[in-house]
Design a protein around this nucleic acid. Structure first.
Ligand SMILES: [Mn+2]
Ligand SMILES: [Mn+2]
Ligand SMILES: [Zn+2]
Ligand SMILES: [Zn+2]
Lengths: 138, 138
DNA sequence: TATTATTTTGCAACATTGTTGCATTTGAAC
DNA sequence: GTTCAAATGCAACAATGTTGCAAAATAATA
């Protein structure tokens, strides 16, 4: 088991349960983003669908993972690598979704450019999602 | 009825039906983006849910409307204002979702900034979705 | 305009996805 | 080990999305 798992859960004052350990491990191994359906498939019958929903929700609230918007009604989740904490996400990096293999990448080193909006709009967050073909699918 | 409705349908080689006229009118009047659920509510019992799904799909394919990604499993749709056509969208403007009132705006005059990705990624589209508070909700 | 051919619609049936309440189980604290 | 709080599984439900097909509406043709 990945050494960071228990650490992360403790640091966020979450009790150490099988499902949390397993789901967090999936994120740590897979690197790329995961949709709810991916987790459900990978885990087989190991735990209930409802538990996955609640675990993802908890992880987002605690700042362990962040959501990635999509245009296909299938939100992805990925590990936060920055200094995110309860209620304060700082995942201002660009995401990439491959049209071919479906993989979603967190481009941690590509920060979202500043966007200047018309006066009147108070911006608190900017999501940038690029899509196309990834290096594996050329 | 809005004068552009029949024009738009004809230009895209779509037959003029009640549901298409009505749904297109909603987009022309409302300006902001609409989710499937919005359309279903606004139309009451006028036509079937399935018809709405199919109409939205057709409009997207024809380049009449475009999708706006979201992080809450609720894709929005908005009128294309550019030179979009069948299979070729060019809606490279920024979108804004108000956290308070839920309105989604197409900021037609704010073009998406160029993003430079690591080599290996072939980008075909970039979506920028900002969120925060809109001018009406300050 | 009337007839025919094509397209769209509504309906039903189904699949998938997401939510809620509550009893049971598990983990943390003592 | 016992106690208390939190998390889980289950069931039941709601919401969302998909497909096939007969009926209806529209477009094309005569
Ligand atoms: Mn990310
Ligand atoms: Mn738009
Ligand atoms: Zn790929
Ligand atoms: Zn607002």
């Amino acid at each position: 088991m990945h050494p960071r798992i228990v650490d992360t859960l403790k640091r966020n004052q979450l009790s150490i349960t099988d499902s949390r350990k397993k789901i967090l491990e999936m994120f740590l191994q897979r690197k790329g983003a995961l949709a709810h359906a991916d987790i459900e498939q990978q885990s087989g019958e190991e735990f209930d669908r409802v538990t996955i929903y609640r675990t993802l929700q908890t992880f987002v609230e605690k700042g362990i993972i962040h959501t990635i918007p999509s245009a296909d009604n299938s939100v992805r989740y990925a590990l936060c690598k920055d200094d995110c904490s309860e209620g304060h996400h700082h995942d201002n990096h660009v995401h990439f979704m491959c049209d071919h293999c479906g993989t979603t990448y967190c481009l941690d080193h590509v920060t979202v450019p500043a966007v200047v909006l018309p006066s009147g709009f108070k911006v608190t967050q900017v999501d940038v999602v690029a899509s196309g073909t990834c290096m594996k699918c050329q």
